[in-house]
Amino acid sequence: MIAIEYVRGDATAPRGKGVKIVAHVCDDLGGWGKGFVLAVSRRWPEPEAAYRRWHRERAGNDFGLGAAQFVRVEPYVWVANLVGQRGIRTGRSSGVPVRYEAIDVALGRLADRAVELEASVHMPRIGCGLAGGTWSRIEPLVTERLLARGIPVTVYDVRA
């Protein structure tokens, strides 16, 4: 089985040839304003607009924990909005917003799309920033859902 490639850099500038999907975790409140989404919005306006519309029209679509939305931003680049976070962390929060089960389901949907597009997947350490998750819980999900299906995955760590 292939292994996750870890690199230093910006996941919004995915490396390599062919079709690429940039994946990240979103909350289920329709919030978009902190963390990695800011880098996504600086590079491409479409994912934020699509996510906000998806949330606004949620009564008539599949928006919710475990859902995945795919937005084409360049001829060979897509962004995957993965709903894997219940709410957001506030000063009064007890516990973390990450929902590992939802990330697992969303990664399955990401894998299906990556196979369909013959794409590689590029991401920061999803679910580990503002969502409060740990990579030791996320990495096995990425391995099981993506690598086990032969999908190349690159994880980007920002430069110090």
Results as ranks from 00 to 15, higher is better:
1 M>I: 11
1 M>G: 06
3 A>Q: 12
4 I>H: 02
4 I>A: 01
5 E>P: 00
7 V>P: 00
9 G>T: 08
9 G>P: 00
11 A>D: 05
12 T>V: 10
13 A>T: 12
15 R>W: 05
16 G>N: 14
17 K>W: 05
17 K>I: 10
19 V>A: 14
20 K>N: 03
20 K>G: 08
22 V>W: 03
23 A>F: 05
25 V>N: 10
26 C>N: 15
26 C>P: 02
26 C>G: 07
27 D>E: 15
28 D>W: 00
30 G>I: 09
30 G>L: 02
33 G>F: 00
35 G>Q: 04
37 V>G: 06
38 L>E: 11
38 L>K: 15
41 S>Q: 15
41 S>T: 15
43 R>P: 04
43 R>F: 02
44 W>V: 13
46 E>P: 04
46 E>A: 14
48 E>C: 13
49 A>E: 13
50 A>P: 02
51 Y>G: 05
55 H>Y: 15
57 E>K: 14
59 A>P: 02
62 D>F: 05
65 L>T: 12
67 A>Y: 09
67 A>W: 04
67 A>G: 04
69 Q>A: 10
70 F>S: 11
72 R>H: 04
73 V>H: 05
74 E>G: 02
76 Y>T: 12
78 W>G: 05
80 A>R: 08
80 A>V: 11
81 N>F: 02
83 V>G: 03
85 Q>D: 12
87 G>S: 11
88 I>S: 14
88 I>P: 00
88 I>F: 02
92 R>F: 08
92 R>E: 15
95 G>E: 14
95 G>F: 09
101 E>S: 14
101 E>D: 10
101 E>L: 06
103 I>A: 06
103 I>T: 07
108 G>V: 09
109 R>Y: 02
117 L>Q: 13
117 L>Y: 09
118 E>I: 03
119 A>G: 10
120 S>R: 06
123 M>K: 06
123 M>D: 01
124 P>Y: 12
128 C>T: 15
134 T>K: 11
135 W>I: 13
135 W>K: 12
137 R>M: 10
138 I>P: 00
139 E>D: 03
140 P>W: 12
140 P>S: 12
140 P>K: 13
140 P>A: 13
142 V>P: 01
142 V>M: 03
142 V>I: 09
154 T>F: 00
155 V>H: 02
156 Y>V: 07
157 D>V: 13
160 A>I: 04
160 A>S: 08
